[in-house]
Design a binder for these strands. Structure first.
Lengths: 339, 339
DNA sequence: ATTCAAAATACAATCGATTGTATTTTGAAT
DNA sequence: ATTCAAAATACAATCGATTGTATTTTGAAT
């Protein structure tokens, strides 16, 4: 009928006990006899008691809540990371608050503030494309809130990371194209303030140099890697005097844009231009031709990042050093590069 | 250096004021003179004060937090609804906690419990495919927590909903196939405990009867509408004595599975079999042939559901009746049905 | 029956912010 | 200078759970 807000005091009154005993009984404390625990538990269930998480957290100054910030949850890679995070967090009795920065620096800052106000015990994040300034992250750390980056990290000391080897994956993607016989390989690069895109780019350059191919600035197309960027880059690329025969795109979405534009303009993929993407988004298997890409183990990254964060949260002294965990990634060959 | 946990008491001490005055100053109360407000605000900023949301919510018994439960965030429809929810909630000063049931009834129940423990002010949800029992939702309501369904609702009285007209959309999808000349139209149906799938199915039947086509039980393929289900249904469907020339799938994912299976088995789409999906997932534009589908305005549904929930939360008397809002949906014609 | 350590439970303070009521300060009017 | 209502600020209780300390109860040993 009415607002059913049962507290431990109500249970205590009903049983002629003190609220402290009820609290200890509900928390299975050794200081309360089993018989009392049974009685309290039965009464709590009967009265529909729900522990007030706010009051409990306030008193313990521990919320058992972690915040997660991703650029956008609609990216399959991020939603699979989140699934991994939830699984590990849930097993450890933690609640997860998921937030999207939508690639906007201002939203990222506001989210950090909200999460601090909510007194989360820790934060897992992948920074936005616009993030170049890290003051908001230092504030977090100063508040004693643990922070672990996954995928899109910051190259600053004393922060923990769970990553894949972007340099090596970029290298692998590019070398794959070279081994397929490509000689003029373009690169769709992402914002260079993000380490991941910087490293994929470096891997590309390294593969060229290892195989004696010249690096040409004109073959590098920087963008935010949206589908539209993939189309526009492809248009420019077709206008180059020296025809391109391979593309390594720093993500799948831009690669998809390229495939759509190129095929509808009569370019044969992979015969004329072979393409490799990055992330193994589900659409990479649906597009025709299917897209060769680098698989990132999202769920495992989420689990590892959460496990690391929880270790940092529950350690007694704050002496646990920052660490970086590198997860395995691998190239999946599909039609778009099968020459 | 150390845990920077500034409270209103610290500010009060530093300024030789009472904490109540500091609290009122920070909340811009008319009971505090502007000069004092300025001083307090400056000091709060200087000391790096962050309001403790837990303490504030506990005292006010209002968290300004809403919980969102979706089957899975990786479905584009749901992530777009979430974007709409976040936008409206954020503008109104609410924080959003996003949870995934992963289509599991047990997870849904646990999530409801967690959200009650977190003392959310309201919940927006789309139920899981396994949900047939609504006791956990009644508990929510008894606790005085407002609930609004979107998309996957329950057909029980006194709950608010934001929906599209699934019956009519199912009708439109099927009639579209009929107008394209299809005579033997199969239906990939979803779990019939969910109203949306029941209504899409009803729409399908209505279209058949309106156009004088017989309804055949053998042409209905019930499943959980995963990609694999689409493949398996297609396999069975090809084995039917009377060849099918059209498919209305209750979601895009199963339709994609069908397109993949059928095209790789030499069936021409749309010439041999025309296909219509449901939801307008992004992959429906990437698949070849592109999939005709029903567009659901995710962002608008999210906004409308949140606005309705907030109205219910902030109304004084609990006399606001439950209401159902129907949002516009429309058929998008693509290659998969262009005969 | 009495003693007394151990076991069980009660008391009371606390987490940090809010808010109704009480007190002090301000400054215009005399 | 005094008065006094209005303005500003202080006092104290409170939200609900937790936890260190104090008190009561239990039951074995005498």
């Amino acid at each position: 009928m009415q607002n059913n807000k049962v507290t431990i005091h109500d249970i205590a009154k009903a049983l002629n006990l003190d609220s402290s005993t009820v609290s200890r009984a509900l928390n299975d404390s050794p200081r309360v006899i089993q018989k009392t625990k049974d009685i309290v538990l039965a009464k709590a269930t009967e009265m529909g008691y729900q522990r007030n998480h706010l009051a409990s957290s306030l008193r313990k100054s521990k919320t058992n809540t972690i915040g997660v910030i991703v650029p956008r949850i609609s990216r399959h890679f991020f939603s699979s990371v989140i699934s991994g995070i939830e699984e590990t967090a849930y097993e450890a009795g933690y609640t997860v608050i998921i937030c999207q920065s939508l690639e906007q620096f201002n939203r990222e800052k506001k989210i950090i503030n909200t999460l601090m106000g909510q007194r989360v015990d820790g934060v897992l994040m992948s920074i936005s494309m616009e993030t170049k300034d890290y003051k908001h992250l230092e504030v977090l750390k100063k508040q004693g809130i643990q922070l672990v980056f996954f995928d899109r990290h910051c190259d600053i000391p004393n922060y923990s990371n769970v990553l894949i080897d972007d340099f090596n994956s970029g290298f692998e993607a590019t070398e794959h194209l070279i081994l397929k016989g490509c000689k003029h390989i373009a690169h769709f690069s992402g914002p260079q303030n993000l380490e991941i895109y910087k490293n994929r780019f470096k891997g590309y350059k390294h593969a060229l140099s290892k195989h004696g191919l010249p690096f040409e600035e004109a073959l590098v197309f920087p963008s935010k890697l949206m589908e539209e960027d993939g189309r526009k880059n492809s248009e420019k690329l077709l206008a180059l005097p020296n025809p391109v025969d391979g593309i390594f795109s720093a993500n799948d979405v831009a690669a998809i844009g390229a495939i759509k534009y190129l095929t509808s303009n009569g370019v044969k993929i992979p015969e004329d231009i072979a393409i490799v993407g990055f992330s193994n988004e589900p659409i990479s298997t649906v597009i025709n031709p299917a897209l060769t890409t680098i698989n990132q183990p999202g769920i495992e990254i989420g689990k590892a990042a959460t496990a690391l964060l929880l270790r940092q949260i529950t350690k007694e002294n704050d002496a646990l050093d920052a660490q970086t965990i590198i997860m395995d990634s691998n190239l999946i060959e599909r039609q778009s590069s099968k020459k």
